[in-house]
Design a protein around this nucleic acid. Sequence first.
DNA 1: TAGATTGTTAATCGATTAACAATC
DNA 2: TAGATTGTTAATCGATTAACAATC
Lengths: 221, 221
Amino acid sequence: MPRYPGVSTSVMRRLPRYYRFLGEFMRTGVERISSREFAEIIGLTASQIRQDLSHFGGFGQQGYGYNVSSLHAEIGHILGLDQKQPIILIGAGNLGMAILNYMNFQSMGFELIGIFDRDPRVLGRIAQNQPILHSDGLSEFCRQHRPAAAILCIPRSAAVEIAPILVERGVRAFWNFSHYDLSLDFRDKMVSVENVHLGDSLMTLSFRLNNMLEDISDPVS
Amino acid sequence: MPRYPGVSTSVMRRLPRYYRFLGEFMRTGVERISSREFAEIIGLTASQIRQDLSHFGGFGQQGYGYNVSSLHAEIGHILGLDQKQPIILIGAGNLGMAILNYMNFQSMGFELIGIFDRDPRVLGRIAQNQPILHSDGLSEFCRQHRPAAAILCIPRSAAVEIAPILVERGVRAFWNFSHYDLSLDFRDKMVSVENVHLGDSLMTLSFRLNNMLEDISDPVS
DNA sequence: TAGATTGTTAATCGATTAACAATC
DNA sequence: TAGATTGTTAATCGATTAACAATC
């Protein structure tokens, strides 16, 4: 299990982007790339790319640059994409089902082991080869199958209620789509929370649309 | 139409969060709040909140703090949430439909005026009181109805193809869910792009889960 | 008035960029 | 070898935090 203590959030958040672009280079047959070329394409500086990568090791070669496929594999490993962390999805409504269909968990370090909902109309349906189970069995399920992570596609109130139970059952990471800052509840706990605030995201677009001046396009976000 | 030129991305991205918390304060009957109390709840420093707000005006009062509902309204106005920018959705698959059901565009500065897809199986269906139209009519639709923004829930290749056409037709903002950094294509244009990279988001969770040390919970993201 | 809290200026901290010796 | 490009150290820039006079 890799450990990189001194890595800042800013650096960490750029890694998936690097990974994505490197994957694209592979598909288009690019075998090697210099930090200068990479920077040009991805919209960053060459310094930043070299600085970022140097946190994890020396992956390049002077006078040559970086080998695309091996750098891709290295970053994948750093991100833990070669792991199979057991993950469950809670809330198989519109959004939950969309995420199930849209994401490829296997290629992102996770393995989906359970889907839960409360609505009798969806219970028992099959999604991604999994029957949708009743949320009442969640606690017992966790005791038996020990999910490491949970995707929360449930309303705010349900998230507030369920999250602490899951943490007690050993869940250590949340991908949270409820309109609630779950991270604040676990400030001191050994729990990782990735809040996806789609509303916030749309509001920033509204701001920029209504204030269209220079801050045109932000390549990072 | 409000204009705030000197506002950095970091400040801008915190506004929706302030707005969300203020809304919650209103619901729970909190009428006023000091930057110190607010900071404690939202997980920032009081300095930062005051500094951020001061970019837009003096909304507080010495010795009193901020009036919750008027600050809420002010930030909503700054974000342009009281506007009705015409917006279209392209790609009524799983994700597109989830977004239609999940988001309240009216309260976020937009008005949905059209839904488009290519799949004959979904054409004509009604969602949010709108019939799903064929993408072939997109260009003509834009000429007539002048959408200011577009939500892209289509694959990478389709996004690359359609976005420049829409820009030519006057679309000036994209909420982009395709696995593609659309912002890079419009670096110099007067076009705002908000990329939502759900894959990147999940990968950062994978990283943190596998590197669980201190960087535990990031209250912002 | 006295206490509280703002808006703003100055100090600190961290992240990005530039420079360059090392080396393939 | 000579040219190119890395990894890293130093310089710059921007964002966050602290301090405080102004004032409700």
